[in-house]
Structure formats: structure tokens, C-alpha cells
């Protein structure tokens, strides 16, 4: 069964001089019940607009959407009972304590902390030592954990997390994803948006979103397997110089920095030897070339170029 169904959603915002910005440009997809589904894209791709429409906080211009079988327009009250939503901006009551916030959200949804404690226990114990502290005085990582607890306290069937890891350091990001894996085991459908491409591999399926359109949607391993060209990882002594030489070479379809190496998308019928010889000829020193496997970021870059 599908937990989320999106059909031809379009949402525009007015812009300067009577023009419009297309935040969502006719997108359609489905999310299966129990899936951990990632919406991956940069700022301005349309991630928050999509989540706000699905959580009944915003109306689309056209198209339809269903969450847990209910229409986001007609059945908005039903949907609000069933979804948990953690917005990108911290939106709890800053002047209430940790415990008061949690109690408040439980009461609003006609439940109690005790009733659903098992669901949030693993997360809540980490902030429990600070339960009398005002939410506004918590650190970033703890605010995030409290917000997640509040979004879960009514045991939602679908959880929407809008950029939960933005601006969060690598260690806290890793911990957050471990929490999501635990929640998934409880049978909750999770839609999570992120600008970090490396988080795609942690999702069951992902939609790559850019300028309001879906570039690709599938299992991360399927998307990366669809990368057709030969991809090489190349390094040399002067990396910035190497990049310029690669671009002038005419041997590569695209070259770009990729951590310790540059990634080079080869044109057809050009061998590693040919490239190696060219680079040596051009005076690059300590050249190291190896085959690389494309990851989601390589795919995103390639798909953006095809746009």
C-alpha cells in the first residue's frame, strides 16, 4: 500500500514584475508504507514546498496528493491527526521546558507521553537529563532531538522531516540517521529531505529534486548503476592546475573536484593510457588515475547537465 501519492503537483509563487517562480513543476511519485524515502536537492529545489503541501499547510495550484489514503485538501483534518512534521526551522515553544513541550504536543493529540513512550524512549533518554530546561536554551543537537520526539509523540503513520541535518556536524548527522533507521523498524513511513547528497545511500529510495522537477527517482544503488560513462578519479601534485589541463584536454566530457581526487567523466573511446600520456605531456607530475564508481553526487551533476 502507498503511504503517499503525488499526482502532477504544481505550485508557483509570485515573483518580480508579475512573473512567477515554479517551486514545483508538475511532479508525481509514490512512497510505499514503511519506506524511508529521501527527497534530495539543493536549497530552492522545492523540498519544503512539497512537504508543506503534503502536511496540509499549503495549497497546490493544481494536481492531487494523498497521505495515508486521505486527500490533502478535502481530508486535511484526518491527515493532521496522522502525520508528524518537523519543519526545517526550530518551531517548538522556546519558553516551555523540554518536558512541557512534549506534554503539550501529546495533549493536543489527545494522548499522553506515557502511552507512546516506547516509541521515543531511545531518543528521549538522551535529553531527559535536561527535561526542566527551556527549549530555547538547548544546544542545536538537543533541540533537534526534542523536535523529533514532539513529532512522534502521537505515533504518526507518516513522518515528514524537512532538512533535519542541515548545518549539523558529521557526527550528529550520523547519529540522527541511526535514529531514523530505528524508527523505520517500528513501521513508520518516513519522508526526509536533505541537501547532503551523501545521505541518499541511507534511504530505501530517493527522489533527486532540482528546480521543482524530479531528475531521477529510484533506489540509490539503481540510480548510481545507471551512470553510463566511464568515471575516473585523477590526482596530481597541483590539483588546480590539473583541473585546467583536464578541461582543455578535450578527452573528458566533464571534470570536477571530488574530495582528494578530481572526477573525470570520459568521452567514449578514450582510454586511461591516452589520458595518462596527455597529462604527462602537459607537465602534470605524480599523476594517479584510477577507475571510480559513481555515487549519487556524480549522478546529480550528470543529470543537472542534461537538463
Amino acid at each position: 500500500m502507498e503511504a503517499v501519492i503525488v499526482n502532477n503537483l504544481i505550485k508557483t509563487y509570485p515573483a518580480e514584475k508579475k512573473s512567477v517562480v515554479k517551486a514545483l513543476n508538475d511532479i508525481s511519485f509514490k512512497v510505499n508504507a514503511g519506506e524511508l524515502f529521501g527527497v534530495i536537492g539543493p536549497d530552492g529545489a522545492g523540498k519544503s514546498t512539497l512537504f508543506r503541501i503534503l502536511t496540509t499547510l499549503l495549497l497546490a495550484d493544481s494536481g492531487t496528493a494523498f497521505v495515508d489514503g486521505f486527500d490533502v485538501v478535502k481530508d486535511y483534518k484526518e491527515i493532521r491527526k496522522r502525520v508528524g512534521y518537523m519543519p526545517g526551522k526550530f518551531s517548538l515553544y522556546q519558553d516551555l521546558s523540554v518536558e512541557e513541550n512534549l506534554d503539550f504536543f501529546a495533549t493536543i493529540f489527545n494522548t499522553s507521553i506515557r502511552e507512546n513512550y516506547d516509541l521515543i524512549k531511545d531518543i528521549y533518554v538522551q535529553i531527559a537529563p535536561f527535561k526542566t530546561r527551556r527549549a530555547g536554551k538547548l544546544s542545536g543537537g538537543m533541540k533537534q532531538k526534542l523536535a523529533l520526539c514532539c513529532a512522534l509523540i502521537h505515533r504518526p503513520s507518516v513522518l515528514f522531516l524537512d532538512e533535519p541535518t542541515t548545518g549539523v556536524d558529521a557526527v550528529s548527522r550520523k547519529e540522527f540517521w541511526e535514529m531514523l533507521q530505528q524508527l523505520k523498524k517500528q513501521g513508520i513511513t518516513i519522508l526526509v529531505s536533505t541537501p547532503y547528497m551523501d545521505e541518499a545511500s541511507l534511504c530505501d529510495r530517493v527522489a533527486l529534486l532540482q528546480n521543482g522537477a524530479i531528475l531521477s527517482i529510484d533506489k540509490p544503488t539503481v540510480i548510481t548503476a545507471q551512470f553510463n560513462n566511464t568515471l575516473l578519479a585523477v590526482k596530481a601534485d597541483n590539483m588546480f592546475g590539473l583541473l585546467q589541463v583536464l578541461r582543455e584536454s578535450g578527452l573528458a566530457a566533464n571534470s570536477y573536484p571530488f574530495g582528494e581526487y578530481h572526477h573525470v567523466v570520459m568521452k567514449d573511446n578514450i582510454s586511461i593510457e591516452e589520458l595518462g600520456n596527455y597529462l604527462n605531456q602537459k607537465g602534470c607530475t605524480t599523476v594517479n588515475i584510477q577507475k571510480a564508481n559513481a555515487n549519487i553526487e556524480d549522478c546529480f551533476i550528470a543529470l543537472m547537465r542534461n537538463e
Partner: peptide, 14 residues
Amino acid sequence: TGGVDPVTRREFWE
């Protein structure tokens, strides 16, 4: 470079 798309992020580093 927070939140910037992967192509622009690289142009920025260049």
C-alpha cells in the same frame, strides 16, 4: 557552501 547544489559548490571552490 551550505545548501548549495553540487555543481555550484564546486564552482565556488574553484
